[in-house]
């Protein structure tokens, strides 16, 4: 295929998913700069494989590559605490993400946690949650992907997506309420 035509097709099909790609990489790696590097690398990998994989769900395909690239990234940095389950009460950092732009806000509905302090607690709770739950929650709740799409991306059965999601939610609720209590008592 003509090279320029290939680039053009790739860009028109794949660049629209860039926000989703960045969001996933950002939540997995936990850092702005790492997420940028991961997304760039993932796009190059996707471009190399693009000719062979034109007829599939392009978003799922790109996010699969982004997820693999993020995992390799973490491994290459020997940042194993991300990959291993750890105690939430021990690990409670308070540094804020440097910017969150509310991409989905145009469609905002009414029922949201109202106090901004609680939102910060929830954000940190999600950030501290073990990766196997965090990635499923991010893909489903933030990106709005179906159980089936997530199953394809993560490489697990649909039933496992379902149970990880509900367990992830329960963990988030628990962490959130325990941190809200601690804050009330002045410990946070």
């Amino acid at each position: 295929m003509n090279k320029n035509l290939l680039i053009e097709q790739f860009e028109s099909k794949m660049l629209s998913h860039m926000d989703s790609a960045y969001n996933l990489a950002r939540w997995i790696t936990g850092h702005d700069q790492d997420a940028e590097d991961v997304v760039q690398e993932a796009y190059i990998r996707a471009f190399r494989g693009f000719e062979k994989y034109t007829d599939i769900n392009s978003l799922s395909w790109l996010l699969t590559i982004v997820r693999n690239t993020s995992y390799n990234w973490i491994k290459s940095k020997h940042d194993y605490k991300h990959l291993i389950e750890f105690d939430e009460s021990v690990h409670s950092s308070s540094d804020e993400p440097s910017f969150i732009i509310e991409r989905n806000q145009g469609l905002r509905q009414e029922k949201i946690l109202t106090s901004s302090g609680n939102k910060d607690l929830l954000r940190n709770a999600l950030k501290d949650m073990p990766l196997i739950f965090r990635e499923v929650v991010v893909l489903h709740e933030i990106e709005g992907l179906s159980y089936k799409e997530i199953a394809d991306i993560v490489g697990i059965p649909v039933g496992t997506v379902m149970s990880r999601l509900s367990r992830g939610r329960r963990r988030l609720q628990k962490t959130l309420s325990s941190r809200m209590n601690r804050r009330t008592r002045g410990e946070l």
Binding site: D19, A21, R26, I100, I101, E102, Q105, I112, K119, I142
Partner: peptide, 10 residues
């Protein structure tokens, strides 16, 4: 809250 407020934009 997660859906409308926690998405990072590139």
């Amino acid at each position: 809250t997660l859906h409308y407020e926690f998405a990072y934009s590139s």
